[in-house]
Simulated scan of single mutants.
Amino acid sequence: MSLLEVDQLGKQYPTPAEPLVVLKDVNLRADRGQSVAVLGPSGSGKSTLLAILGTLDEPSSGVVRVEGQDPFQLSETALAAFRADRIGFVFQEHYLLPQLSAFENVLLPLLATGPATAAGIARGESLLERVGLTDRRTHRPAELSGGERQRVAIARALVRDPLLLLADEPTGNLDAATAETVTELLVGLQAERDGVLVVVTHSEALANRLDRRVRLINHALEEASV
């Protein structure tokens, strides 16, 4: 059984004329430790797919399973707990809280289920060191560069060691040199994990560093060659 299984996934939105089809018959498998790049033109449904994988949006049809479990069969409370425990997000915008320090932002996901434990705090410290920002731990987002803010966001996404790490254009707002740094960081951290990384990106450089490339074409996924 693959850690991530997507079968016949569809998503459409009602309109006065006819339904707007965004995704249709999407199928995907990803095993533990694997990374997948999702490519496709703007408006092809990449971000919608990522939102469904992250349980932020519901599919119109089909099934998503993470470690054999369909999260959309859970109650609203159980789904929120599932998302907090098993899914991490890195967005194009870092979405750090401006009033908190870099380290406090990293620890935020730990508070979703109660006070941060000593082990959780230690993991946050380790991740902040791993992304090279120990000396910036007390700085607030406004005092950090764009690349530094994105590195904090990556540490935050990994602090609960999620089974599924989802990244939506994580280098989209960065210059070439900083994008390369963030790419190296994502690839390096994924190599140390037992979970799945799915990255939506327009960057061929980032996509080429991942294990697999798939492309959204006509609402469905196809394997993409390098």
Rank of each mutant, 00 (worst) to 15 (best):
A37D: 10
A155I: 15
K46Y: 00
I52T: 07
R156I: 09
V182F: 01
V199D: 00
Y95W: 12
D211E: 02
G33I: 01
L39Q: 04
A167E: 03
D7C: 12
S145L: 10
L127P: 11
R215A: 09
G54M: 07
L3Y: 00
S75F: 03
P16K: 05
A112V: 12
L166M: 06
G10Q: 04
A205T: 15
L197P: 03
T178L: 08
E93H: 15
F91A: 11
T113D: 02
S203T: 02
S101D: 06
G68E: 04
V66M: 05
L189A: 06
H219C: 05
V199Y: 01
A122V: 11
L28W: 00
S145H: 12
L96M: 12
R136E: 10
Q73E: 07
L56Y: 03
P41L: 09
A116T: 08
V131E: 05
L100G: 07
A177K: 15
E5P: 13
A191L: 02
R83M: 10
L108K: 08
D175M: 13
T55S: 04
F89E: 02
S101R: 12
R212N: 06
G45A: 08
V214D: 04
P71G: 09
E223S: 14
G62S: 03
R83Q: 14
G172L: 09
N105Y: 10
A220H: 13
V38W: 01
G146I: 13
L128Q: 08
P162S: 04
Q150V: 12
S44N: 11
V187A: 04
G120F: 06
I154M: 05
T181Y: 02
V214M: 12
V226L: 14
A30N: 08
E184V: 06
I52D: 08
V152W: 04
R213N: 05
L28H: 09
T183M: 03
G188F: 03
D31M: 09
E143D: 14
V152E: 04
L96N: 09
A30W: 00
L216K: 08
L28C: 12
L97G: 09
R213S: 11
V38T: 08
G114C: 12
L108D: 04
L128Y: 07
T48F: 01
V226N: 12
P109H: 04
V36P: 03
S42Q: 09
G124N: 04
A102G: 10
Q190W: 01
R130F: 02
S126Y: 00
D135P: 06
L164E: 02
G132D: 07
L189H: 03
A51Q: 13
G10W: 01
L163S: 14
L185G: 09
D175Q: 10
T77R: 15
Q73C: 07
V66C: 06
A102V: 13
A157Y: 01
E125H: 14
G33V: 03
A157C: 11
D161H: 00
P170I: 03
I121N: 02
E148P: 14
L9A: 12
F82W: 07
S75P: 06
E67G: 11
A153E: 10
S60T: 15
G124K: 01
D70G: 04
V187S: 00
L186R: 07
A142S: 14
V6K: 14
G62A: 03
